[in-house]
């Protein structure tokens, strides 16, 4: 399927490029002469799709890891020394609640854009600059939300891991090891998702930029 699509695009792309540009002669000659540009046009869509699928997978993984991080342990009450069952879950911390909400938003956004990109690959039509503009602006907003979530969850998780002796916040990861493993993995995966989003925006910005040259 991929090779069929590629050959189709090899035929289609020069025409699209030619009609969209005013300087058709020069541009199309340049276009035909460099076959690497033609293959790169379909490669961009494939790379974009795979980046979006990766983004969806990573945000979903981070979400599931964070939601399933609940752990119940027996801890001693400080003064009375009575063992009690206490649980640790993400909803105990506002930062982690924000993390879950932001991951849901990013996951939903990536799902919607996967459908859009799939549609564009299966039914080739030129990527209009307006579509790229919308993609970039939405992705920048999602990037802001997701990086803030990564930062806030990371800050709280670091205190949980190391504690802070200056204000007497004890570490909790020695008690709730499973919770901390889940939360830490979710944060690292969401950091990966942030990097993916930066790459996606760069890709869109570059294809927007390439059209004006």
């Amino acid at each position: 399927m991929a090779s069929a699509e590629e050959s189709k695009a090899t035929i289609e792309e020069p025409k699209l490029k030619g009609t969209s540009d005013e300087e058709a002669v020069v541009a199309s000659q340049k276009w035909y002469s460099s076959s690497s540009l033609v293959s790169s046009a379909i490669d961009v869509a494939t790379i974009e799709l795979s980046l979006r699928v990766l983004l969806f997978a990573s945000t979903l993984t981070a979400l599931v890891l964070m939601v399933t991080s609940k752990e119940t342990e027996t801890v001693l009450v400080p003064v009375l020394n009575i063992p009690v069952r206490r649980s640790a879950k993400f909803s105990h911390s506002p930062a982690l609640i924000y993390f879950v909400a932001a991951t849901v938003v990013a996951c939903f956004y990536s799902l919607v854009t996967i459908v859009g990109t799939l549609y564009r690959i299966l039914k080739p039509y030129p990527t209009t600059p307006l579509l790229l503009l919308y993609y970039i602006i939405w992705e920048v907003i999602i990037l802001g939300i997701l990086t803030a979530a990564t930062g806030s969850a990371g800050g709280v998780a670091y205190i949980g891991l190391r504690g802070n002796s200056h204000v007497g916040w004890t570490k909790v990861c020695s008690t709730y090891s499973k919770f901390c493993k889940h939360a830490g993995s979710a944060i690292i995966i969401s950091l990966f998702a942030d990097v993916l989003l930066v790459f996606l925006i760069s890709l869109s910005a570059h294809s927007l930029y390439r059209r004006i040259r």
């Binding site: 930062a95 920048v140 990037l143 990086t147 205190i159």
Partner: peptide
């Protein structure tokens, strides 16, 4: 873009703490 991401994450961390 990278600076916005960096600042947003550090703001998130500082705000959470």
């Amino acid at each position: 873009l990278v600076m916005a991401a960096l600042l947003f994450s550090s703001n998130g961390a500082a705000a959470a703490i």
